[in-house]
Design a protein around this nucleic acid. Structure first.
Length: 227
DNA sequence: AGCGGAAACG
DNA sequence: CGTTTCCGCT
């Protein structure tokens, strides 16, 4: 897939598809691994995409997934309890979400993965942006690309770091996460949505990297003055 | 089942 | 840093 690697309806510029694996030595990350399993059919009985939702998957055999993960990481003592803790750490990082009510069901935050920094060559030929309807059943290729875009994700240290608490600061930011407006177009029925303006957040969303047609309805009012 | 603090680890 | 380990709470 050299050259272009995007799917009709989804914008996946080639630049987001470069960083193959890790630069040599970096260890595998859990979400990376999960995506990997999700991609292979031989693990269909163990973990699989959940039809209907975008990026939603079910761990059909938690013990097995844990075992697999433990094997990869050389942690024979791994189990679902521990693995799920690691998964939970992804909530704040906005990589993953729990699908409430559905057992062993999580959801990748595709919007963040997709909406990575958008350099320059955005021209008119690039239609708006991937509407959720444009992702029918989540083709595995899509996820593959998403996987490769991890580098682009990592290229946002600025705002990401802004979420963290200062060294001396007692872990306030780590816990009290701001409203967290995740995807601009989440399924209405899936997310309760923060009704009121809860605790004032001082989080900054990734800068306006969206192409001409802006999707974001509203920018956050000047909340936190920032660090 | 699921959550999240806390400490430890490489 | 990204977990791993452990655990009390719901």
């Amino acid at each position: 897939m050299p050259g272009s690697c995007w799917i009709p309806g989804l914008a996946f510029p080639a630049w987001a598809c470069k960083a193959e694996s890790s630069p040599g030595s970096r260890q595998i990350q859990l979400w990376h691994f999960i995506l990997e399993l999700l991609q292979k059919e031989e693990f269909r009985h163990v973990i699989a995409w959940q039809q209907g939702e975008y990026g939603e998957f079910v761990i059909k055999d938690p013990d097995e997934v844990a075992r697999l993960w433990g094997r990869r990481k050389c942690k024979p003592q791994m189990n679902y309890d521990k693995l799920s803790r690691a998964l939970r750490y992804y909530y704040n990082k906005r990589i993953l979400h729990k699908t409430k009510g559905k057992r062993f069901t999580y959801r990748f935050n595709l919007s963040q993965l997709v909406f990575v920094r958008c350099p320059a060559p955005w021209d008119a030929r690039c239609p708006p942006w991937p509407a959720p309807a444009a992702a029918p059943g989540l083709p595995s290729q899509l996820l593959h690309n998403v996987l490769l875009s991890r580098r682009a994700l990592a290229e946002q240290p600025t705002w990401h770091r802004g979420l963290r608490a200062a060294p001396g600061d007692k872990k306030v930011a780590a816990t009290a996460r701001p409203p967290t407006p995740i995807s601009p177009y989440r399924s209405p029925h899936t997310q309760p949505g923060p009704a009121g303006p809860p605790t004032a957040g001082r989080a900054r969303r990734p800068p306006p990297l969206l192409p001409p047609g802006r999707l974001r309805g509203r920018a956050r009012p000047g909340i936190g003055s920032g660090r």
